[in-house]
Design a protein around this nucleic acid. Sequence first.
DNA 1: AAACTGGGCTGGCACGTTTCAGTGATCGGG
DNA 2: CCCGATCACTGAAACGTGCCAGCCCAGTTT
Lengths: 336, 336
Amino acid sequence: MAPSMKDVAERAGVSVGTVSNVLNRPDRVAEATKAQVLAAISELGFVRNSSAAQLRAGTSRSLGLIVLDLANPFFHDVARGVEDVAEDAGYAVVLCNSDEQAHRENRYLQVLEEQRVRGVLITPVEVGSERLDALRRRGTPTVLVDRHDPNVNCCSVAVDDVAGGQLAGACLLDRNEHRRIAYVTGPLKIRQCADRLNGLRLAAKEAGLDPDEAITVVEMPALNARTGYEAASRLFRDGTDITAAFCANDLLALGVLRAAVSTGRQVPDDIALLGYDDIDFAADAAVPLSSVRQPRRQIGRAAAQLLIEECDNPITHAHQQIMFRPELVTRESTGG
Amino acid sequence: MAPSMKDVAERAGVSVGTVSNVLNRPDRVAEATKAQVLAAISELGFVRNSSAAQLRAGTSRSLGLIVLDLANPFFHDVARGVEDVAEDAGYAVVLCNSDEQAHRENRYLQVLEEQRVRGVLITPVEVGSERLDALRRRGTPTVLVDRHDPNVNCCSVAVDDVAGGQLAGACLLDRNEHRRIAYVTGPLKIRQCADRLNGLRLAAKEAGLDPDEAITVVEMPALNARTGYEAASRLFRDGTDITAAFCANDLLALGVLRAAVSTGRQVPDDIALLGYDDIDFAADAAVPLSSVRQPRRQIGRAAAQLLIEECDNPITHAHQQIMFRPELVTRESTGG
DNA sequence: AAACTGGGCTGGCACGTTTCAGTGATCGGG
DNA sequence: CCCGATCACTGAAACGTGCCAGCCCAGTTT
């Protein structure tokens, strides 16, 4: 068994209370005594038992963060933002990966609640999770990340995907004066995919174009590079007057790029390309890829700030729904 | 305050011990009583306090995993492997990201020890960490991941980088009969970079070539795509008879690929390319990239198995050093 | 010299759970 | 009718820490 404060106290010839004071309020202990206790601690290799401390304290200094996929750079950067803020506020962060599986999400919610975390940041697999609602009802503050709550009964932080689509459309239609563009996307039942299309259509209208005419929607079953390659292959095979493609994420765009390179097309001269997310590889692609960037780390920071604010002032706290605006990053794939 | 077992017991009209039995040994409780207790639990929204449980138990059912960078797909997949095995054995995994900073690593080691995790899996920032050694001396089993312990006093799992370099060399020199190749690498003081070069030289000798003549080493200060681009730009500018490049990781290779595409060179006809790590983007690059793949998930699984074995049989346990062999994945960038 | 002050320490309770010895109650067998 | 066995439950101790009331004593004030 690991040595306890009692062992330390005996060795140092003091009481347990004094050992506790050395650890938690060192200024209340005389120098000589403190030195003795510290010596005993290091000789015995004492390490505090945080279970006991937390049990006694009745509350922990930690937050839970449940994301859909830690491998996804979006969530990874969100997590960094959360850690930044949490660390400054003296909170620890427990990282959980739901893998988009509801049962994993529920298990983690259970574990976090058993650990008595002070609050939870989560991108739920599905909206309206019963388990999550129960947690909130029992008094654990909750913040939604990259989601919004239709009935505002918790804070949330998300990004305006309509604005992102509009930004992309303005770049291709206004600035570079493309007239026929493709929107390569995953399933339109995914809100992000649909929102970005809506933004794109808005941009077309603003450019004085008929969206139905100017935009060819290529809806694919997934959002990865292979799917992008297939979409582009189909597009190229059918022959088309399209001169630009806006893709619902960078992976699709990289797939389109590969199809272009392998069929000898020049980017951006034969076809301009615009992605979404600005993943690391966008800048390093064979033709550096223009993209719509979301303020990922800031999202995490804002979410953590909201949560900590609610944890620290549960009474005066008012729920907020924060919406960030994305930003356009232009590189070679859309020309000058 | 969250309701405790005492509250549940009062509401159900039973003793605390019975509530505990309902939760932990339901077969020892009569059906009628069990139903009453479960009803009380759900009415009060009782959730067990794991701090108290763990304090009483004296031991936890969890493992710590400290990696250098969770954004790196290598560690991400290792973590998945660890979770696979841990879950089956009924252990929870606490994920920690040291970010290659010794002070973060030390802080996490402290936290894990305070939480009384049963064992720790770690890729240490530096070998010979005093804090890690102390943890081990105090009796917490430890497994090194992607590292070896010179004095075998703990288990470890790593990959044979010399074999990986040799595999790469055999592919380019034997199979595709290149005679002058470049090795684009990060700092050679990084063991992995140096080992892969040694393997490559071995392959050259086996092909009956003089390594110094056949291999041009391009040592760069970093291992990212931009650096690869710069390395290739330099190589191309100087004019050279090199027909293939082996890169110490895929990011460098992607940078070289971009330099090739932007200067109108054909891959693999003008220059063949071979990377290392087989990251997701390797297959989706503008020219799909051949690469040396490490059995990442398996590494995690093996490490977790060793650790759990040691946790469960601390006495009979004998330390093991496992070395995996990497595997060659050929795609278009090295031709047929 | 007595009363007061306060720094420095002690001792014991409380946190919520698990576990185990012990208490009745019920039942079958002799 | 009694005994032992079995079953379902109770009550209390223990885990290690944090906190607080209270004690002691040295130094200062009245």
